[in-house]
Design a protein around this nucleic acid. Sequence first.
DNA 1: CTGAAAGCGCTAACAT
DNA 2: ATGTTAGCGCTTTCAG
Lengths: 346, 346
Amino acid sequence: MVKEKEITIYDIASKLNISIATVSRALKDDPVVNKKTRKKVFQAAEEMSYRSNYFAKNLRSQKTNTIGVIVGTLTSNFQASVISGIENVANKYGYNLIISQSSEQYAKEVEGAKALFNGRVDGLLVSLAFDTKNLDHFESFFKKDIPLVFFDRTILHAKTISILINNVEAAYNATNHLIEQGCKRIIHITAPSNQNVYTDRLRGYRQALEEHKIAFNKNNVIIGNLGFSDGAEAAKQILKMNPMPDGIFVANDNCAVGCMLALKKASIKIPEDIAFVGFNNDPVSEVIEPNLTTINYPGYEMGEVAANNLINHLNGTSNIETTNTIILRSEFIIRESSKKIKQNKF
Amino acid sequence: MVKEKEITIYDIASKLNISIATVSRALKDDPVVNKKTRKKVFQAAEEMSYRSNYFAKNLRSQKTNTIGVIVGTLTSNFQASVISGIENVANKYGYNLIISQSSEQYAKEVEGAKALFNGRVDGLLVSLAFDTKNLDHFESFFKKDIPLVFFDRTILHAKTISILINNVEAAYNATNHLIEQGCKRIIHITAPSNQNVYTDRLRGYRQALEEHKIAFNKNNVIIGNLGFSDGAEAAKQILKMNPMPDGIFVANDNCAVGCMLALKKASIKIPEDIAFVGFNNDPVSEVIEPNLTTINYPGYEMGEVAANNLINHLNGTSNIETTNTIILRSEFIIRESSKKIKQNKF
DNA sequence: CTGAAAGCGCTAACAT
DNA sequence: ATGTTAGCGCTTTCAG
């Protein structure tokens, strides 16, 4: 099979006996060209199945029309939703996406950042890895004024926007709710991470305890990787505690569910013995029995907002330097896993 | 803030007083250049923080080092796993990924294909949308000999490889298992789609019935979009049936779980009243109670295999025209949701 | 082993 | 309204 020759504006020009400049202008609707010429050019382009050459264009314009995305992992419902939102917006504005997974490791994140830098992305959307503590690997982007938007896992920085929910408040509400349900010994299961999302949730947890004059005990904070199996692991620890806790606030639904299942197997009653609150409103929270009380974390929307902000900035419509943080609304959803006090029916 | 000037091989050349040709050669380890020169070039490149310009390179080589991926949706565990596998392999070989979501709609798939064609991807990995019936929108790729690998949802075509599991066999095993557990009236819940994965599963279901002399009844096939809520919808229909079924084989775990929850709410006992088998081995299958019997569908591995095949072909290591279909191993996993016959303990 | 130079396809300044 | 031309950064052929 013979490969079809790639059509260029030269081919169109010579077919129409006009100059390439005119073809180039016509193709991007430059009002300066004669309407008839324009029409002819478009027709010819269509017939010859011309497609514009991005590299040549990019080579001249020094833009790639590509956005880099760095996330921890794709295989969580939350992250997939975010990507989905990003993809949607990017698509609309004609931007491509290059996605890089850090697998929650700083080293891989650095590698990914370097690759995206060399790929000359126009901008970057980033959710930081568990163990990322500094932003040195993004210095090269700052130096070249390549805009950077953080979402979810962020570190504040003068040259970036952060898209967040109010994690302190959400965690405060969660913990407060457990206290109101009568819990006295509340465990918090979270990640071994200095990321804002985890420190803020811990802070909200502590705040609620303090307000109710419950002493904070660092043995009540269980650290793990927040996966499903880490939840089961945590359950083992919990079962050894004496006295056992009567409430658990987990920084992520998946882990909460793993923990609940393990405890249920050990004949712990939820919520009667131990009440549970998770985080994320992952679909699994409505599968586990009892359904998990959680915080709705708007992933898709977060992706859209992040992408919109970046692209607006890229198009010069907005300026990252003026805005610094965007807080999205989150929502506390009460389900059966935390209702120790049964509602009266009227 | 002053933008740093972009360093090119000209800068390196003039600094070192050599020609750009030598720099270019040195940079890609052409054995023809003097080792000392090579070293100097690398050192200078490092110092000046040079980064190679992909557009210029691509413009010359007419390659993009980019692979296009078209999937229905990112927000399913299976698809996310596939992408994860693809990303991993692509990354290893220095390929970028452009991901396009069809949202399971043919029209969007066509659009995505066009965009990727104009984006001049070197190759394509595709899982077709629910309602895609022909491959016309990929004609332009075939004409230009741009290789195409299908995975999961495929249509056989001389110029492509398909990566699959044996859906007929898997569905046969699932149905057979239900029959062995004593089920007489087995429902199959599936998608309104002509995609191989669904027709094959239906075929396997019928085959098992036939072998056991159970008449096929088309009213026992419930069609929906296989989402969580479609499962609940199906449950409504099932509750109206008289007699009710005693076994259900669902073409996807998510939908199975939605259906199980709805039936449980209606006080149906699983597996005693109705036994369930799903498909995919989604994590949720181990959260639902009773745990869901299902077919393990190796998503991550499928992504790896698909990407490897495409890249090998791109590198000339293998030839798509000779291979046509690659069948991956799947696995039937029996859990509580289908065990009507309790095992004797020894 | 190294250098000179053409050309990949396109845009934009300048000229007509 | 249209054409001419330089040049974006790189690879590669041909010459030395």
